[in-house]
Write a protein that binds this DNA or RNA. Structure first.
Lengths: 334, 334
DNA sequence: CGCTCGACCTGTAACGTTATACACGACGTC
DNA sequence: GACGTCGTGTATAACGTTACAGGTCGAGCG
């Protein structure tokens, strides 16, 4: 392996000078710099990142822990984080937690293996009760969920408000029996609970009753389960004229299920999702959704993490992203 | 920072013994092991991966260079590689190349920064002419495209055969004016060219003419462009009863475009894609596609890379994955 | 009783880089 | 001519881990 020492010898300088050239530090004569660079080229030298990391105490790598990269939402999130990370010269390693609280905590522990300079944790399993476990002496940013006043920085979605706006949108479009589809409730800070809360508030704000029959709970956030659930509900004669889905991915399944049940969208039933994933607008019918401004979230998360790494951040910060309801065919007035 | 030396001191052993415990090496008395482990726990010690990497000359990290993670196909690929990588104790860093040949070459160069033990390159821009550039003294596996007899291992899709089968499927379902939608042709090994070749062969095999009018070329592989193209073609009066799309992502756009043009799928026009992404079966109508067995591909790529890293691999290998046509609603006989 | 052997453990020297402090001319200034 | 200063470059000592080559000690054996 070609080392910095080999370059130094070949170029007739000290290793330190080579290092200075590599790191674009001043105090190197132009002619020397050129000679060193030429030697590097000639010998095809590459710096050994491991050695550099050890010496510098920085790896320039951050971890991004997401439930599953192959879900559209997390794919987009990952893409955005990778992109903004690159702007800060950060590499991004993706850890998949598979939506388990267990693995999310493991990711937190793993990250402390000093492998990363910091960790962005897109948590779905962690709850209020894990607040103390987050108190690590390691740069961490929680992304997405809402852990109130946790000990770490947090970029949250406007889950409650966004959901409320989505449901309000359905009400404005004339829906009166609005179903909601989400995962198990009961957590305190998970998406299902928060967005269900928004659903409740919207109904309340419009003086509409909360009908427990209209709550559809699926145990996994997959289109499969969503489609099955819709078909079954319909077969059982459940009557609704709209469904608010906790995520777009679930909504895709709902659209499919409604098609299977021969229910016309949006004529008979209107559907709205949450996340505003790219594919929404290519669905047939195009899916209305709540856009939580992913790009800003990803950027904020990276920026916060960088600040934390640099040590220029003090008190934990909580950023709540803005949102807007994007109306498409699936909620068009008939 | 707590180091191995601190642990050694506190446990009353040498750093080497701590290292032996950490690495589960033999020749450590049970009582000593327990004491060391306890000390590690007490002091909340974590090994410094950078130091270990430097010393061992391995980073246990591989790079995965894909065009864009936020495309369903690459998301699924990334998920699979991360999963199989984990089985080999490998971390995966994702590099986005943005479909440019330039960046793919950069990824190759970057990877040689000894940051990774190896690289899986899902190349879309590289061509036959770059064959020599691939001749690096670094473990690399090319995934997806087809560079014949290149100097590196290669896990290829059955692009030509798969496409041919897809088009044959359309012909069997009674289609006679089959359009094809793909990116710019002219490369020698890119998806568009290879799959177009399969299209040509299928027509030829069934004694059907190749009508240049039915070739729709889009400059970007996005649903947007695909939808626009379909709408425009239809508006211009182009007559076709099926479209073979170079990828599912493009096919999603085509379905959308056909809906916009008020064309019934599959009654008036049948559509088939390629990749068999998860979402295919939730489209309305559900999208027929060619399944190239991603999981096997991802597994093969990781296995090959590991073998290459271990040095137990000699001659470059070329693996072509199997495929099968998955028929769904979008190609159902009316 | 001396010798070998194996189990357990340790000391030393790297791995390749860079922070720090310092060296050495040359030049300007008083 | 002594002194500071600036620009350029170097020597040394880490960073935290692990490979390697011993070292010790008790048991087993002839």
């Amino acid at each position: 392996m070609v080392t910095i020492r080999d370059i130094a010898k070949a170029a007739g300088v000290s290793p330190m000078t080579v290092s200075n050239v590599l790191n674009k530090r001043p105090h190197v004569r132009e002619s020397t710099r050129a000679r060193v660079l030429q030697t590097i080229e000639d010998l095809d030298y590459r710096v050994n990142v491991a050695a550099r990391n050890l010496r510098r105490g920085r790896t320039h790598t951050i971890g991004l822990a997401v439930p599953e990269v192959d879900r559209p939402y997390y794919g987009q999130l990952a893409a955005a984080v990778i992109q903004y990370g690159a702007q800060h010269d950060l590499h991004v390693v993706i850890e998949q937690t598979g939506r388990s609280r267990e693995n999310e905590l493991t990711a937190l522990a793993l990250s402390r293996l000093r492998m990363y300079d910091g960790l962005i944790l897109s948590a779905v399993g962690l709850g209020e009760s894990d607040r103390e476990r987050l108190r690590v002496d390691f740069p961490v940013v929680i992304l997405g969920e809402r852990i109130f006043k946790g000990p770490v920085d947090h970029v949250a979605m406007a889950n409650v408000d966004g959901a409320q706006a989505a449901v309000a949108h359905l009400i404005e479009r004339g829906c009166r029996r609005i179903a909601v589809m989400h995962g198990p409730l009961g957590g305190d800070t998970d998406v299902s609970t928060l967005r269900h809360e928004g659903y409740r508030r919207a109904l309340a704000a419009h003086g509409m009753p909360l009908d427990p029959e209209l709550t559809m709970t699926i145990d996994e956030f997959t289109p499969e389960k969503a489609a099955e659930m819709v078909v079954r509900s319909r077969a059982e004669g459940l009557d609704f004229d709209a469904i608010f889905c906790v995520t777009d991915y679930v909504a895709f399944g709902v659209l499919r299920g409604l098609a299977d049940a021969k229910v016309a969208v949006p004529r008979e039933v209107k559907v709205i999702g949450f996340d505003d994933v790219d594919l929404c607008r290519f669905m047939v019918p195009a899916l209305s959704s709540v856009n939580p401004d992913h790009d800003t979230m990803a950027r904020a998360a990276v920026d916060l993490l960088v600040a934390r790494i640099e040590g220029t951040q003090d008190e934990p910060v909580e950023i709540v992203s803005s949102f807007r309801v994007v109306a498409r065919e699936s909620t068009a007035s008939s």
